[in-house]
Design a protein around this nucleic acid. Structure first.
Lengths: 110, 110
DNA sequence: ATCTATACATAGACAGGCGATGTATAATAA
DNA sequence: TTATTATACATCGCCTGTCTATGTATAGAT
């Protein structure tokens, strides 16, 4: 698992936006899915996700709507806004450039 | 260029350690080399590098030694310690796992 | 009756990057 | 001559996102 929380900075937002680009999701679901899809390399908790969701909503990149689920529990479902979709494209490109740069700098020969 | 400084967190240290794993270098040289090798995707400044070097030295991952260069300017040359070399291996593996996870999470299908 | 899972929320601690600023010298340009 | 740029070190303080801990509430399982 990735113990270094510094690395996590800056990637939570694009990851969430990318999830919501595919389908409407609620917070708890996102946490579980992130952890599952990384085989627990990432171990997100509420303290990581919820503030991030609120930031994204304040920035109008996502929107929320309460719904009562089949299990009778209230869930806040999030969807991507048009602005969010545009930012997602930028963030993905930014990540690609960033990751490529780090890979170059961490390669054997300098 | 990578505008998001949050992404930079956590990668400065392994990058520096990796540089010093290949040869003895001084701070100003590292800044120039990082910017050059990323085609200015990274634009490190003194405020990024020097505190980081001091942290690494305090943690005994690197060591320093003053020298007078050919241009008559004093330079502080850094070298990797054995401990630093061991941490570098860990950090590189950590980056690999991290980058792979992000790539999975940013892929089209969720 | 207790524990676990679901599902939301937030406060405060912590730490690293970055802009700004500072010192000092050498070389170059106006 | 003077001004600027490049080299080379250093640090202060702001900002911001992550994480631990804590809280509320409900449903289902033990």
């Amino acid at each position: 698992m990735v113990a270094n929380s510094d690395l996590m900075r800056g990637v939570a937002e694009p990851i969430i936006l990318n999830f919501l680009n595919n389908k409407k999701m609620y917070g708890y679901e996102i946490i579980k899915l992130v952890n599952e899809k990384t085989n627990n390399a990432f171990q997100w908790k509420e303290g990581t996700l919820y503030p991030c969701l609120h930031r994204l909503e304040a920035a109008k990149l996502i929107e929320s709507e309460w719904q009562i689920a089949e299990n009778n529990k209230p869930r806040k479902y999030y969807t991507l806004t048009r602005k969010g979709a545009a930012i997602l494209v930028e963030k993905k490109e930014e990540w690609a450039v960033f990751a490529k740069s780090v890979n170059v700098l961490l390669s054997a020969t300098v």
